[in-house]
């Protein structure tokens, strides 16, 4: 048995310490970046936030007043997107997890979902413009924007739903089928109810995504400014992300309106991260209280 040189050992541990320091550094940079951005936005935005800011429309060419129409518009668009994306996504996931058997068609569908997930948001915007605004003649509207966003979040929802469906134990399905209950009844009565919490938390992430996107709604739904609230799904709306972009790049007086910009950013961040936080917390809670 030969002796490992003490100096070699020392060098090996030094190497390790250096590497670990590097890794911790990377983790720290990412954390600081996120923390820094959020903190900065809070510090600069908090002073603009008031009850009036949230509940009043903009005035004086958007240099004063609130952002209520933009908040409302974002809520409309998000609700619209989820009511399109959720049923389609869940149904799609049900086929993939419950019915599909390995094969070319399934492989193709999976590649399709991955590719759809990778389509740039601005391309979704072009698609929404060409398809819903022009071909379907919806115009720039809540409907066109919701459809565009709904398809944008489809891969997220399919992924989350598949994971949730797969986590329902196989023994539940077997028990139900062995009783002579048909497959679709088993899916609707046993599998789906047990997967629902997982599907919903996964979908909340999709909601967050839909609420924060700008490019897909620029040409399909978002209005630079409207004084009136939308009366139907065929009306344009203001939306928080687009409002930020407009204020920061094309406002009447960009430097003067900084506080309003920060305030709007803070509202959007709070909305989106709040939605994400809810999902993260529910998921952690569910994992801890898993019954099977």
């Amino acid at each position: 048995m030969h002796q490992i040189q003490a100096s070699t050992m020392k060098w090996r541990y030094l190497q390790q310490s250096l590497f670990f320091a590097l890794i911790r550094g990377a983790a720290l940079i990412i954390t600081l970046a996120l923390g820094g951005i959020i903190l900065y936005i809070i510090i600069h935005g908090i002073s603009a936030i008031s009850w009036d800011f949230i509940t009043k429309p903009p005035t004086h060419s958007m240099t004063q007043g609130g952002i209520m129409p933009a908040i409302l518009g974002t809520i409309y668009l998000t609700v619209g997107a989820i009511s399109i994306g959720l049923p389609l996504g869940v149904a799609s996931a049900i086929y993939l997890t419950e019915y599909a058997r390995q094969g070319r068609v399934i492989r193709l569908i999976r590649v399709g979902i991955n590719c759809l997930a990778g389509v740039p948001s601005v391309v979704f915007g072009l698609f929404g413009l060409a398809f819903f605004v022009i071909i379907f003649k919806f115009g720039s509207s809540i409907l066109a924007g919701s459809l565009t966003l709904g398809f944008l979040i489809l891969p997220t929802i399919i992924g989350a739903s598949e994971e949730a469906l797969k986590s329902v134990p196989k023994t539940f399905r077997e028990a139900s089928l062995a009783l002579g209950v048909s497959k679709w009844q088993t899916i609707f009565r046993i599998v789906l109810p047990n997967a629902l919490p997982g599907i919903l938390t996964g979908s909340i992430l999709g909601i967050g995504r839909a609420a924060g996107e700008t490019a897909p709604i620029m040409f399909t739904a978002a209005a630079f400014f409207t004084s009136k609230l939308p009366g139907s799904v065929f009306d344009e709306v203001m939306a928080l992300p687009y409002h930020i972009y407009v204020l920061a790049t094309a406002g009447t007086n960009i430097e003067e309106t900084r506080p309003i910009q920060y305030g709007t950013v803070l509202v959007l961040v709070a909305l989106v991260l709040g939605i994400n936080m809810i999902a993260i917390i529910i998921r952690a809670y569910m994992r801890r209280n898993k019954r099977w």
Partner: peptide
Amino acid sequence: VFQKPNPFP
């Protein structure tokens, strides 16, 4: 009846 008890939740 299965190997492991599998009541529904």
